[in-house]
Design a protein around this nucleic acid. Structure first.
Length: 415
DNA sequence: TGGGGTTAT
DNA sequence: ATAACCC
């Protein structure tokens, strides 16, 4: 087996791009997408003027008084466009894995092999690289690189297709695994692509000056690594594996140490349709049962609509809350879940009106498992999640379609 | 600090 | 059910 060829696609400031498509007047103006008190992303016009991702609205307006803000708390337009991108990529290869709404991995090994065979039969030679090459190291004519170089051409075609069919621009990285493709995709930033050849792998990974930049090493792990005196990728590479295993357990220790060498053997796993549907809202204060009920009804209305369009039945409901706490930073979420009563399941295909009140009752029971309503409480977030999604028990063979593709139901002939 | 997602334990 | 990770 010769290695894989993986492309990572990362759309440029995705929410802002979607908003500019929805309203082209915003095209050439500095635009930010706002959720509550945050500018969660912004277009490049705004970035030129000093606006950054996740900047507070206050700071952003100080930096850039002309900034136009659109509310992005309802993710529906972004979610829909996101799945269109994933579906489009699925036309090239069945191996497409989503990461958030704006990133996709595509395993393009099979496409490369097919083209390689055609190329060999037609006797052509010389394969041109598309886009940048990281560090410009390595011999592009080296036959050991031909598959990756062809991968760069395919990545170009993926980006072209996304632009031509959906009007979106983005970056791509091509490398021999997911980790490296993702790391390299960000090297040239808007709307460009970069190929990583094996010679430059160590430069790429060791060039990360903080370990938290390594995808898979998050906040908690970084803190614990720092306790061990590990601050950068080189430290982690050189650290004794036995000691690391004692701190993190064998599984985590081996995984993160391999990551530090740029090694990642996890396959590109097709995401398929979503595993869960959730809707949440945050607020300054919610302190009565009546308010909770109101909020839950709103969340449910949105969710039931999405589930109806999906067509599957959720067998589990979960309620998540965040309680106000002055000191605690971010860890303060609790949840309770329970099965959806089987007699409610058939109602999921239809109008939400018969489902909403029994579900609110269930959610309020879950709520009372966490909160003693006889005492004062102060919530800052409510979230409802449906999971454990199952296909409808249908007598017919064959599973449901791909992703959220909705075909209009067959007209007439309702028996 | 938003409003989502996933997998592992 | 929580904890970690990702965007």
């Amino acid at each position: 087996a010769a290695g894989r060829v993986v492309a990572h696609l990362d759309l440029d400031c995705f929410y802002a791009q979607v908003e500019m498509i929805r309203n082209p007047e915003l095209r050439d103006k500095p635009l930010g997408v706002q959720q509550k008190n945050l500018v969660v992303t912004c277009n490049y016009e705004a970035r030129k003027l000093g606006v950054k991702k996740l900047m507070s609205v206050k700071d952003a307006k100080e930096k850039c008084p002309q900034l136009i803000l659109v509310n992005g708390e309802d993710l529906t337009p972004y979610r829909e466009m996101s799945y269109k991108v994933t579906e489009l990529l699925g036309e090239f290869s069945p191996l497409v894995e989503r990461l958030g709404f704006d990133e996709n991995f595509v395993d393009i090994t099979e496409i490369v092999e097919k083209r390689l065979n055609q190329l060999q039969q037609s006797g052509c030679s010389g394969v041109r690289v598309s886009g940048h090459v990281y560090n410009n190291q390595g011999d592009l004519h080296d036959t050991t690189h031909v598959r990756l170089v062809m991968g760069s051409q395919i990545a170009e075609e993926l980006r072209e297709a996304v632009h031509a069919r959906l009007g979106l621009t983005g970056c791509a990285g091509v490398a021999s695994n997911k980790l490296l493709s993702k790391l390299v995709s960000g090297t040239f930033k808007p709307n460009q692509q970069t190929l990583l050849l094996p010679e430059s792998c160590q430069d790429l990974i060791r060039g990360l000056n903080h370990i938290q930049k390594v995808p898979g090493i998050g906040y908690k792990t970084t803190k614990r690594l720092e306790t061990l005196g590990i601050r950068n990728v080189c430290d982690l590479q050189a650290f004794p594996s036995a000691v690391l295993e004692k701190e993190f357990g064998v599984s985590v220790a081996q995984r993160i140490q391999k990551l530090s060498y740029g090694e990642d053997d996890t396959p590109v796993t097709p995401s398929g349709p979503p595993q869960s549907f959730s809707d949440e809202d945050s607020f300054k204060k919610c302190s009565s049962e009546a308010e909770v009920k109101e909020k839950l009804e709103e969340l449910l209305l949105n969710l039931l609509d999405r589930i109806r369009k999906d067509g599957r039945q959720p067998h589990t409901v979960r309620l998540t809350i965040r309680q106000f706490s002055s000191s605690d930073k971010w860890l303060n979420r609790e949840s309770r879940q329970c099965p959806v009563p089987p007699h409610l399941l058939p109602r999921f295909g239809k109008e939400s009106s018969n489902l909403i009140s029994p579900l609110v009752d269930i959610l309020m029971k879950l709520f009372r498992k966490m909160i003693d309503v006889a005492l004062p409480f102060h919530l800052t977030l409510l979230s409802v999640c449906f999971s454990n999604l199952k296909d409808l028990p249908s007598g017919k063979k064959g599973s449901i379609g791909f992703y959220l593709k909705q075909m209009s139901p067959p007209s007439g002939s309702g028996k």
